[in-house]
Amino acid sequence: MTTRTRSGPFRRRTYTRRLAIIGLALACLAIFTLYFRESDSGPLHSVQDAAGGVVAPVQTVAARAIEPGQDAWTWARDTNAARSRAADLEKENAMLRSELVAARAGADRAEATRGMATVGTTFARDYERVPARVIAKSEPAWYERGRIDVGTSDGVVVNSPVIAPAEGGAALVGVVTAARPGSADVTYITDPQSRVGAIVVGSGNHPGILEATTSGQLKLEGVDRDAAVEEGQFVVTGGFSSLDLPSVYPPELQIGQVTGVGSQETDIEQSIQVTPFVDTRTLREVVALAPSSPRALRRAQG
């Protein structure tokens, strides 16, 4: 072990070093404070946005490079889940899945693209569909956001809705919150800061606001107690945000399915749990909707 003598120069060096570290910590605090005090178009947000654009090409390459590994991981996870659900079919499942995996690696991309062909048929006049790949993700505990490899050069703008293929067709997954020439950041509907005006299909005219819960599920708030809501009903975008203002999302885009309804006798609103059709944690292929009509552009401008 080194013996330290508390000589004058040593003490001076130690004090200088401590002062430098304290200075750096204060700089971090200053950046943090300024970042949260400024608007979304402030200088620090702009720097962050520009840095995202610089890193995006590298993230694109990395996302492609790890795709085979992700396929293998998905396969392993699926296999494990199948075993726990149906032990007696384990052997048969393993055989089928091993055949599936061999085909899946090559078919994944084509399958996703096929799904996208049916996407957005009800609002095709207002939006141009821009297929995209998720190239980066935020830390899932705190943010549900991703970065896609298309941007303003492809017609995608801030507030462009983003959808993805689901079992019953296309489903909403989020909205573009930052756009650059070659990439864009998407805030998913499961992000804590996301709010989507939505209605339950078949429950009458009872709009609500869809918010994320901590478990990656959604809850629909503000729906009247009188609304006839049952488990299994579909939830779609309402085309409004609040106070009847137009939403950035076009109406009638499917979002998810009601998985729980509850209310106390004293409540005037229902508590509705919604499971989104698309699992944003495993999302890889999406479609950004680039506004192509004046009506869609007005929506994008909020």
């Binding site: 570290i21 750096l24 910590a25 971090c28 605090l29 200053a30 950046i31 943090f32 404070t33 970042y35 620090l44 720097v47 962050q48 840095a51 995202g52 890193v55 993230q59 980066a136 993700k137 935020s138 830390e139 705190w142 943010y143 956001r145 991703g146 970065r147 930052a178 950041d185 998407v186 800061q193």
Partner: peptide
């Protein structure tokens, strides 16, 4: 914080500095 799509700046910098 600059390169990931997250909504903070300076927080992780301070934590890793410590």
């Amino acid at each position: 914080e600059l390169a990931s799509p997250i909504g903070t700046l300076g927080v992780l910098a301070l934590l890793y500095l410590c």
